[in-house]
Simulated assay, not measured.
Amino acid sequence: MRPWRTPPRVTVRSGPYASPNPAGSVYAHQEDVLGATVYQVPPVTRGGSAEEQTYAARCAPGSAAFWYSPALYGTLASGGTERPLEDRMAGVLPLGEVPASGVLDVTVRTRTQNATAGEHPVGCLDRAALDRAVGRLTATGATDVAAGGHTIGATLPKGSAGTAVFAMTDVPGWQCTAGGKTAAPVPFHGLVSVPLPPGADRVSCSFTPKGLAPGLAGAALSLLALASATVASLRRRRVRT
């Protein structure tokens, strides 16, 4: 498969989007993050046994097929290729290009008890739709991004409106600004986002691990106490001499 185009690390979203694909699937989540429909998530027919499970699905010929089965550990075979399955650690696995018949056949050999691939293990990616989505995000996204250490800043096109979305995980510790003013970060499908006030063409975020600031303050107080004790000790020695 050829490399996929990727959007800028900071993009601008003008409005809400909800994937039309099944909400519980990893593919719908990816579409929610991207803000566009790029996957076909077909129903699957399951057969075989608990130890050797078979799955069949139909997708558009030429699309790129993927597999996700976070509950299964074993091996996956499809299109003449076998690869390891390591439950959640395996992530989303490429199955290759959907053949002209449109039929995908997958065999999973597993020792995981009472587990299956779930309702929606297969997703078929429309490359052209992905290219269009990335093109839109690139056209409206940051024109310049600078990142270093625990800080990232971006320049946005003039007149940007909506929400700036940063390609970084939403965890406690992020502090952001938009248009030079403090802006509380907002979760965006697991990423960090910042609402844009009118006229804002610059956004930035810096990360301080939770508890670091109080820890630094405590360390500073300890150093002050140590310094005070040292000075007092030196003074006492001078008095004695």
Rank of each mutant, 00 (worst) to 15 (best):
M1Q: 07
P3W: 06
P7A: 09
P8D: 04
V12K: 12
S14P: 00
S19V: 07
S19K: 07
A23M: 05
S25A: 08
H29W: 13
E31F: 02
P43F: 02
T45L: 14
G47E: 07
Q53W: 01
A57F: 11
G62N: 08
S63M: 00
F66P: 00
W67M: 05
L72W: 05
G74N: 04
T75V: 05
L76T: 07
L76C: 08
A77V: 12
S78M: 06
R83T: 06
E86P: 00
D87T: 02
V92W: 00
L95I: 13
V98P: 01
P99G: 12
V103I: 10
T107E: 12
V108G: 03
A115P: 04
C124M: 11
D126N: 14
A129I: 04
D131W: 02
D131S: 03
D131N: 10
V134C: 05
R136P: 01
T138H: 03
T138Y: 01
T143V: 14
V145N: 04
A154C: 10
K158R: 15
A164T: 11
V165S: 07
V165R: 09
M168N: 09
V171F: 02
W174I: 10
C176R: 09
T177I: 01
T177N: 04
G179V: 10
G179A: 11
G180N: 09
T182P: 01
A183E: 14
A184L: 13
F188K: 10
P195S: 13
P198Q: 06
R202E: 13
S204T: 12
S204Y: 00
S204V: 00
K210G: 05
G211E: 02
L212S: 08
A217S: 07
A220E: 10
L223H: 04
S228G: 15
T230L: 13
V231P: 01
S233G: 14
R240E: 13
